[in-house]
């Protein structure tokens, strides 16, 4: 009978699979956002299991800001090819034309144009009516109340007051034309659960998660890796080689590294278990104000 008992991780896995299948059953044109981070990879593994032995019935989409770490992009291309998935890459060409970078536009405007606007453009362009995202409720306070099926109006905006109650495992996915949902199959997972799953399932991840000497500069107390020379140096600033790793991955100028010697998954897990700070601390974008994530979500951010 022991095979009939589910551990918490197996239970979370089963619930996520149910959610992913439900979206495919209820929506016409779903897409899975693929950010190349560990959460995306775990979510993708769940999707593979949901439809095994068949292939994914939807494409993956990466919203590229053009400032992602180089290693992320090379990992992405190899991984997707090896697994035989279909990947769409979307870049906000208007933003590129306007020459918007995190250095000249400021964090908020850059994020808005290259991430939020880019995502909305892509969803409208392809007419996707459901988009899977790897966000978790334990990430941030305003996420704690997020539904698994998060409704967006035709302008892709989120109204925190007007979300549907979700009972049992019954997800009401009915939408009017033009409306869409964002779906979060990992809602009930914690950062630790995701890492454990990556470990248990032996999912390959971007090597940036593991410590290695990398060229970094200290900006406002955060180690930023200079991944290419688009990043201007302050007068007198010289990148130094430090053994660092990243707890989250995003745009390299906005992602802080932590000092670490953990060069494999087991060591990362041990370091994390002994850690005293939450993972979003490495993210510059939602560190400024308590309600900033909520504000971004209202505008259409994930």
């Amino acid at each position: 009978m022991t095979t009939l008992h589910l551990s918490h991780l197996e239970q979370l896995e089963a619930e996520s699979i149910q959610i992913i299948r439900e979206v495919v059953a209820q929506f016409e044109k779903p897409v899975m956002l693929f950010s190349i981070g560990k959460d995306s990879l775990a979510m993708l593994r769940l999707a593979e299991k949901a439809f095994a032995p068949g292939k994914l019935p939807f494409p993956l989409m990466h919203v590229n800001t053009t400032f992602k770490f180089k290693e992320m992009i090379s990992f992405r291309d190899e991984f997707v090819k090896a697994r035989g998935h279909t990947l769409i890459e979307w870049i906000n060409q208007e933003g590129v034309k306007a020459g918007i970078t995190p250095f000249n536009a400021g964090t908020q405007r850059y994020t808005h144009v290259m991430k939020t606007e880019a995502l909305k453009q892509a969803l409208s362009h392809y007419g996707f009516d459901a988009a899977f995202g790897g966000a978790r409720r334990d990430e941030e306070k305003s996420r704690a109340k997020e539904r698994v099926f998060s409704f967006r109006d035709r302008f892709h905006t989120w109204d925190p007051k007007n979300q549907r109650p979700e009972l049992w495992n019954l997800y009401n996915g009915r939408v009017a034309k033009g409306e869409s949902i964002r779906v979060f199959p990992l809602s009930n997972w914690t950062e630790l659960d995701v890492w454990l799953y990556v470990y248990k399932e032996q999912i390959p991840v971007v090597p940036l998660y593991f410590a290695k000497p990398r060229p970094v500069v200290n900006r406002n107390g955060t180690w930023i890796m200079r991944d290419d020379d688009r990043m201007p140096l302050e007068p007198g600033e010289v990148p130094e080689m430090r053994s660092v790793r990243f707890r989250t991955l995003g745009c390299y100028p906005l992602t802080g590294a932590v000092d670490s010697q953990a060069s494999n998954l087991r060591e990362v897990l041990e370091e994390m278990l002994r850690s005293r700070t939450s993972e979003r601390q490495g993210r510059v974008i939602d560190y400024d104000e308590a309600g900033s994530m909520e504000q971004k979500k209202k505008e259409g951010y994930f």
Binding site: T3, L6, I17, Q18, K49, A52
Partner: peptide, 17 residues
């Protein structure tokens, strides 16, 4: 199939095919 892997049996709460 339980979570994508073939098995002999499955119980409550399991995602199966």
């Amino acid at each position: 199939f339980v979570s994508g892997a073939e098995r002999e049996e499955a119980g409550p709460g399991m995602a199966v095919t």
